[in-house]
Design a protein around this nucleic acid. Structure first.
Length: 506
RNA sequence: GGCCCGUUCGUCUAGGGGUUAGGACGUUAGAUUUUCAUUCUAGAAACAGGGGUUCGAUUCCCCUACGGGCUACCA
């Protein structure tokens, strides 16, 4: 590595928002940049105006921020190489395309979409490349005066790269090692579209050069077009400044085959986006990990270990640890199927490890979203530490802990009524009396008093323990019952017993 | 079809010329917890196939198979 400052860019298209593979690419870019004290640059590739979606850039930025991997430069914050939105850089690209034409590395093509379509029908396996470029309407084989006339008249045209013949292009990929391509297999990609917008191929090279990008990590789906980019770096005279490449393995569908797509989420019942995303064109909502109840730490953790590991058995990593330990050489070459079960496990682990106090705000939000008012921060923190071991998602705190904030709405009567008896009614009435006179209100004392009373009345503990639990929480779940009672407090506990007595056994 | 990339338990993966092929998720059984979960213990579970090279290949090479990607005036 030279002494150039490391600059890594994350350049998503706004069209699909941010799916898992995208965030993972961002993460790896970020980790690499930060590990080398470099810059993490967000650039938005929005040159396809047909697929532009309003609000996408803001969304992408928020996703990154939620994950804690905010870029140093972005369309929103700006930076020394602004603008960072390719559509705003449009005037820039033509100059380079013209330069390539002037130097014989590219040419104007006037073929209409209809003509191209016809050609594809007529010629099996048609490729606009070394085999057919001289059959087409372009500046390579049209007389010079005709080309000039067409240009002068503003005839719609594109600029295509002229791929050399009988050559081999190879390069060293940071994750794959040497990769090589025969140029005869590569077609003359469009560089500049008829509307004046660059294609990805031109834009990515020009922008990476202008923005002084040193490392370019992107999905494996880009590997086949790498030779085009390599050639462009060479033809533009920038070869010495070309970034180092790394093509990351794809994230695959858990079932069936193919790369994970947006639709798979809805189909398989798990999110593929970091956060909720509403497409303003279609109104369609795609659910996100955040809204489902994932902690950003867990989300990042599961993404990082999908296709990367540090060579040890460690599974849980903080962002800091990832930054320390990440190395692009340890990224695996093969695509990885996404496993939602394991994703949930990561979240459960993070929930267990996280301090109850730290989760307060997030859990509070969960309750408030369900219409439960949460009062008392200390109380909430205690509730959280009592139940977080049995939550997998943040949203589980509602089902696991709503009874700490309101009386059970329903009781699992099937679990108590078949075995109910008058002696039990008597027992609980006595329990109310006994509990009411208790001086202090600690779990151990509550348990001692409870057990003493069962013995006194000749009952088995098992006979009244479960009913007691159901009185307090409504069902057969939750932490140790006396811990619940202790936290609920005397008045509330007594009130719940009284209330339950009116419906039990009737 | 062509080109490129890949292939270790069901899944994510470690490993690497001689290992009882390790871990994690999930799964099965048991223990603990007079609920549910947690936790703990144990179990089942993999080197795609065929040729080389080698004293010895899961590891290196080749072929095949399979999987994936690309093959747009999309990224």
């Amino acid at each position: 590595m030279s002494d150039k400052k490391v600059r890594v860019r994350f350049a998503p298209s706004p069209t699909g928002g941010l799916h898992l593979g995208g965030v993972r690419t961002a993460l790896f870019n970020y980790l690499f940049a930060k590990k080398h004290n470099g810059d993490f640059v967000l650039r938005v590739e929005d040159t396809d105006q047909n697929r532009y979606v309003e609000g996408a850039e803001q969304y992408i930025l928020e996703c990154l921020q939620w994950c804690g991997i905010a870029p140093d430069e972005s369309p929103v914050v700006g930076g020394p190489f602004a603008p960072y939105r390719q559509s705003e850089r449009k005037p820039l690209y033509r100059e380079y395309a013209e330069k390539l034409v002037a130097e014989g590395h590219a040419y104007y093509a006037f073929d209409t979409p209809e003509e191209l379509e016809q050609k594809r029908k007529d010629v099996p396996n048609f490729q606009y490349g070394h085999g057919h470029r001289y059959d087409m309407r372009n500046s390579l084989n049209l007389p010079l005066h005709e080309v000039e006339t067409l240009l002068h008249n503003g005839t719609p045209h594109v600029v295509r790269i002229k791929i050399p013949e009988d050559d081999t292009i190879n390069f060293n990929d940071m994750v794959r090692g040497y990769v090589s391509f025969e140029t005869n297999q590569v077609d003359d990609k469009v560089l500049l579209k008829a509307d004046g917008m660059p294609t990805y191929h031109l834009a990515v090279v020009v922008d990476d050069y202008l923005m002084k990008i040193t490392h370019a990590f992107r999905g494996e789906e880009w590997l086949p077009s790498a030779p085009v980019h390599l050639l462009l770096w060479e033809y533009l005279g920038w070869k010495a400044d070309m970034p180092k490449w790394a093509h990351l393995p794809l994230i695959l569908k858990p079932d069936g085959h193919g790369k994970l797509s947006k639709r798979d989420g809805a189909r398989l019942g798990f999110p593929v986006y970091a956060m909720n995303w509403t497409d303003r064109n279609s109104g369609e909502l795609t659910e996100g990990f955040r809204e489902l109840g994932f902690l950003p730490e867990a989300f990042l953790n599961l993404l990082a270990t999908l296709g990367w590991n540090d060579g040890t058995d460690q599974e849980i990593f903080t962002l800091d640890e990832l930054m320390q330990k990440f190395s692009i050489e340890k990224v695996s070459k093969a695509g990885a199927k996404f496993d939602f079960e394991k994703a949930k496990w990561f979240n459960a682990e993070w929930l267990k490890r996280e301090d109850g106090d730290k989760l307060k705000d997030k859990v509070k939000q969960v309750f408030e979203d369900k219409g439960i008012a949460v009062t008392g921060d200390d109380y909430l923190a205690k509730v959280i530490s009592l139940i977080k071991d049995r939550a997998v998602l943040l949203t589980d705190f509602y089902a696991q802990g709503a009874y700490f904030f309101e009386q059970p709405k329903e009781y699992d009567l099937n679990a108590v009524n078949p075995k109910w008896a008058d002696t039990k009614t008597a027992f609980f009435n006595l329990l109310i009396e006994k509990y009411s006179t208790l001086q202090s209100w600690e779990a151990t004392e509550l348990e001692t008093a409870f057990k003493a009373l069962t013995e006194e009345k000749g009952l088995k503990i098992g006979d009244v323990m479960l009913p007691f639990r159901i009185m307090l929480v409504g069902g057969k779940f939750g932490p140790h019952v006396f811990d619940i009672a202790a936290l609920l407090g005397k008045d509330e506990t007594v009130a719940r017993i009284e209330k339950a007595l009116t419906v039990f056994g009737v």
